[in-house]
Write a protein that binds this DNA or RNA. Structure first.
Lengths: 123, 123
DNA sequence: TTGACATATTCCGATATAGGTATATATTCC
DNA sequence: GGAATATATACCTATATCGGAATATGTCAA
């Protein structure tokens, strides 16, 4: 079996740096294909192919506007990634460490009736 | 040119679903290779290869323990992904919409001296 | 040393990519 | 209709994957 297709989900689509740049560009608003190609200084066919991948996973949508095709960011498609990565936030955010410290402190004086609930572990 | 190697960065390493599952497993704590293989019900060589990729991008670390090798999650490696995706939070979080609504409201009465600063757009 | 266990590596095949170039499709204007 | 512009697709090459099976490496124990 080969690697998962880039069109299988947002994770794979976003692994390509050029596609991430395209999404960041479109976060500023709708843009035509040539406009994106000029901003990224790469060829038009490449941009068309990248946009096709992004569209396949629902990260962008298209609208016909004369002979142009305006591509718009559908940022909601990134939420699954955000949700998954957020499950690991404790591993770089030291506020979790501070919470643990606080727990240790107050437990030296008197154990709390109910322990503060920690965010759940990722799946 | 071919697709970026899976070892090029966290984005590519995490595009593979099995590797995401491995990271979620290790979030519970250190585990040996066979233990991971059993939990995911896949072969040991596959797990070894996935862990090699994850190690190459700094998402896990290893520790020798007798004949076992204990793999530990290095969650900080996921922060670049979190940072990048968070730049798009406005596209699925409606609190940004509520802020815009609030701005429109108060501007109908009297323009504020300084507008509340919106989070910056992603790069 | 030999055996048993844990892990890593190698070889294979099928597949899918990204970039480049050329070309096809579509729309507008004259 | 025909030219010009904007975009999409087709074809090619080099490369890198994932999974499976076999094998190599490494460590402990008797």
């Amino acid at each position: 079996m080969a690697r998962s297709p880039t069109t299988s989900d947002a994770f794979n689509a976003v692994a390509e740096p050029q596609r991430r740049k395209i999404l960041s560009l479109l976060a500023r608003g709708e843009q035509s294909v040539n406009c994106v190609a000029a901003s990224l200084s790469c060829t038009q066919p490449q941009v068309s192919k990248h946009l096709k991948v992004l569209r396949a996973v629902g990260l962008v949508s298209v609208r016909n506007c004369g002979k142009q095709r305006m591509y718009k960011l559908e940022g909601g498609g990134l939420k699954p990634i955000h949700d998954w990565v957020s499950g690991f936030e404790r591993f770089w955010n030291d506020s979790f460490d501070r919470l643990a410290l606080y727990l240790a402190e107050i437990q030296n004086q008197q154990p709390p009736a109910a322990l503060p609930k920690m965010p759940p572990l990722p799946d």
